[in-house]
Design a protein around this nucleic acid. Structure first.
Length: 290
DNA sequence: CACTTGACCTGTCCGC
DNA sequence: TGCGGACAGGTCAAGT
């Protein structure tokens, strides 16, 4: 669920909250949530300071003064929540947080900074992970080697998307958009929203798209992602930002989770089908299969 | 080789 | 009320 906009909103929050802070302790009980921690944390995490925070696709990279980096993937249900030193509720605004006292039963890793504030990695379904890797080796991570272009860069345009789609000619456009090697950061919510905006049926074979449709789709992807970031991302089930607050994008959603409701463009009832093994929402009038 | 399916997990919801 | 099963959907490994 955390897709590009949600991860970007977390990054922006962490940028305000933890830059310059020094790690003083780390605790974890679920080994798979922090698989390589044992070997390296004492030398390269404790006493290291946070230099800056990046995002690549749906992952977060916290660069440290030790020339190591924490690489974090939230997968389905991961959360990164900062709490100030003065309260478990954090920041003195418990009512703003969707999350109660921390740690709770889905807390997997607890980072403590030297000022006693904490960063909690919560992950109900345990699919997410934190890894500590040398900063110089980040580009060698196989996931990053294969990762497609960032859709919000100016350099990402219809020509680039068309090129990336060439080797996926026989699959559906929805499967292609979800494929992180085609482009980075789009997941189920924004794939459905972008395809509705561009008036393309999600099951359309990639090779049947013309340049006009690819251009519309490129614009739609950028617009949808930007609107979501502006509104704090999508809280479908349990996404929260670094302050534990929910996002508001789904107020603006046009199809996602709106099956049974009228299409905002034409009034036809939105349906939910399965495409590429995923729940897929579309307007059967606006988005015709070719 | 391209593409699909299953595994990884837990919580929620639905039908019986 | 309890219980089994479907479902949620990101990524990798295994299978077709």
């Amino acid at each position: 669920m955390p897709e590009l906009p949600e991860v970007e909103v977390i990054r922006l929050g962490l940028n305000e909250l933890i830059i310059g802070k020094k790690f003083s302790d780390v605790e974890f009980d679920w080994v798979k949530s922090f698989p390589n921690a044992k070997n390296d944390i004492k030398l390269f995490l404790l006493n290291a300071k946070v230099i800056n925070i990046q995002r690549k696709g749906k992952s977060i990279i916290i660069n440290l003064s030790s020339n190591y980096s924490l690489v974090i993937h939230l997968r389905m249900t991961g959360q990164l929540i900062y709490r100030g030193e003065d309260a478990q509720f954090g920041g003195g605004h418990p009512s703003e947080s969707l999350v109660g006292n921390l740690p709770d039963k889905s807390t997997r890793v607890i980072f403590t900074f030297s000022d006693k504030s904490k960063l909690f990695f919560n992950d109900q379904r345990k699919f997410g992970w934190v890894k500590l890797v040398p900063t110089s080796l980040i580009e060698e991570i196989s996931f990053y080697k294969k990762l497609g272009p960032e859709p919000l860069l100016k350099s990402f345009d219809a020509v680039v998307l068309h090129e990336r789609l060439l080797r996926k000619a026989n699959t559906s456009i929805k499967a292609a958009l979800l494929d992180q090697t085609v482009l980075a950061g789009v997941g189920n919510i924004y794939a459905d929203e972008s395809l509705w905006t561009a008036k393309i049926h999600p099951a359309t074979q990639v090779k049947k798209l013309n340049i006009e449709e690819t251009t519309k789709l490129t614009r739609a992807i950028k617009a949808v992602l930007k609107l979501s970031i502006k509104n704090g991302g999508s809280t479908d089930r349990n996404y929260v930002n670094a302050r534990g607050q929910r996002g508001n994008y789904l107020v603006f959603a046009n199809v996602f989770r709106l099956n049974g409701k009228p299409c905002k463009r034409c009034g036809t009832i939105i349906i939910k089908i399965r495409v590429a093994g995923r729940g897929t929402h579309l307007c059967p009038s606006c988005q015709k299969i070719k």
